[in-house]
Design a protein around this nucleic acid. Structure first.
Lengths: 154, 154
DNA sequence: GATCCCCTTCGGTCGACACTGAAATCATCG
DNA sequence: CGATGATTTCAGTGTCGACCGAAGGGGATC
């Protein structure tokens, strides 16, 4: 007997959340992200998320606030509806990833400052130079690569 | 009256450590890294690091073990010397960065699995598809970019 | 304005992890 | 083999952050 699609999807959501937990996103935040990526219908209220994901209303609220803040989720309120509806904002994933790439490239600012402090002592600067060289290259190439990113599929 | 170079370097080390602390590397581990990148002479014993960085011998030991493990620092023991000497391994920075890039690209494995679970329901898969598309592109381009990385400067 | 939901806020708990310092371990040398 | 000096191990402490659930506040409907 095979497991149902929804069961497998919830296992997938858990894997999804686990991955982002390693990157510092709270587990429940990751679950919300994964869930909103595959749920039907696409919009959910906080109460629904709380029930589906078996998390307290407080945790849902905190994490939604965070996700809305970074743009990965959008909140929609409607007149005549007391409950706000939340949905994934696929568009924001580009910014999300760009921030990660920038974080890597930004080390170059650090190594650069370090090199300045060691100017006049090339011998001593050798170790830092090797690292600076690599990050210098990345800070050139990563933004350039990013410019070539494809548009979203239709 | 201007501050000395060593004072400014220790401030730089602190910034350096702070950056990597955000990426999950313990503060003391980051300090060791920064310090070993600029110290003169290049090799230090655990006891010296403990004194210079004002950290307990235990913390130094734990963090050196971690740094040696990921390859960023190498340990050298010498006959006739009870104290091991530690130094930066500039070469290992490439692997270190590659792991970061891989971590980003590896999300594609997740989105791919998700797409499989939603096959047969293109409507519902639309949101995930947008994200999968982006990560698919990254998982092509990042390794390709990495292949073009420059050799260390002489 | 009273009622009813729903959401957010907030105090409190729990677990994880960095760090310390002392004790145990290990290697070298007399 | 004992002494010495260095490192690793380990138990204990403190901090931080995720999470919960109850209390409070804001809309919407009547």
């Amino acid at each position: 007997m095979s497991v149902g699609r929804e069961t497998r999807l919830s296992a997938w959501i858990e894997r999804f959340a686990a991955h982002f937990a390693e990157e510092g996103i709270p587990l429940i935040g990751g679950r919300i992200l994964g869930y909103l990526l595959v749920c039907q219908p696409v919009e959910r209220t906080a109460a629904e998320l709380s029930q589906e994901l078996e998390a307290s209303s407080g945790s849902i609220s905190t994490n939604l606030k965070y996700l809305v803040n970074v743009g990965l989720v959008t909140k929609r309120t409607r007149r005549g509806r007391q409950a706000a509806e939340y949905r994934i904002n696929e568009k924001a994933w580009t910014d999300f990833i760009q921030r990660k790439l920038n974080a890597i490239a930004s080390v170059q600012l650090l190594t650069d400052d370090g090199m300045r402090l060691l100017s006049g002592d090339p011998e001593r600067a050798m170790r830092l130079k090797a690292v600076d060289h690599l990050y210098g290259w990345l800070s050139e190439e990563l933004p350039a690569l990013w410019e070539r990113r494809p548009a979203s599929p239709k």
